[in-house]
């Protein structure tokens, strides 16, 4: 475990804490895309099928349980919590997430490291994670007043994979047992690039001390 990986995991964790904080304390999910949240739940469910069979470390297992539990409970909150669901911006969250799921699944069937049930699903989860933010970014562009918690949530979520890229570079040079992981790296780079535009406006609004607003 190097500092980049740890920092990546911590920003990922932070993003979820920020989102849960928003839902728990102000009982609101305004500006949050349910489509994206459902995609993340699917990402973690398909990626962490190994939770009961492969033990890497206590840290990994605990984190996997955390990501699985929180992603599913966030979807539950947005769909069923009688207060939270009222703030869900259904009319603007119209991206068809099925259009992302199907191509990712087909791609995982074609391009994978090993044609097994678990490996294909793992690969699918990487492809899907790379693009899962798209409905959220679309919703942000349609949202007039993006609140701080939502902006920070997306920022932490984007920073996480960017830090993982630094971790991969570090491991590539320092860990002789570390293999080439083309699928992971490519997906991670695509995932981070999707945030480029958002990062630009996020940092600009932060420096100018202005409210975050994405141009349409």
């Amino acid at each position: 475990m190097n500092i980049f990986r740890l920092a990546g995991d911590m920003t990922h964790l932070m993003s979820i804490v920020v989102l849960l904080l928003k839902m728990h304390t102000i009982k609101s999910c305004a500006g949050i895309s349910l489509k994206t949240q459902e995609l993340y739940a699917l990402v973690f469910i398909t990626r962490y099928l190994d939770i009961f069979t492969d033990f890497v470390s206590l840290y990994n297992t605990v984190m996997k349980i955390f990501f699985l539990g929180t992603s599913i409970s966030i979807v539950w909150y947005m769909r069923y919590h009688k207060v939270v669901k009222q703030s869900y911006d259904k009319d603007h969250d119209t991206f068809r997430h099925y259009f992302l799921i199907l191509p990712c699944f087909l791609l995982a069937l074609i391009i994978n490291d090993e044609f097994t049930f678990r490996e294909v699903l793992w690969t699918f989860s990487l492809y899907l994670e790379a693009v899962a933010i798209i409905p959220q970014l679309v919703l942000l562009q349609r949202t007039k007043n993006i609140d701080n918690l939502t902006g920070n949530y997306v920022f932490f979520l984007g920073a996480y994979r960017g830090l993982y890229i630094l971790n991969w570079i570090y491991r590539y040079f320092t860990d002789s047992h570390y293999r080439r992981k083309g699928i992971t790296w490519t997906s991670g780079i695509v995932q981070t690039l999707l945030y480029a535009d958002f990062f630009y406006y996020y940092i600009r609004s932060w420096r100018r001390n202005e409210r975050l607003n994405l141009p349409a």
């Binding site: 990986r5 995991d9 470390s57 990994n60 984190m63 090993e114 793992w122 971790n167 992971t184």
Partner: peptide, 10 residues
């Protein structure tokens, strides 16, 4: 020999 794909990251 270890598996072709080991997933030790999250």
């Amino acid at each position: 020999e270890s598996k072709p794909t080991e997933h030790d990251e999250l």
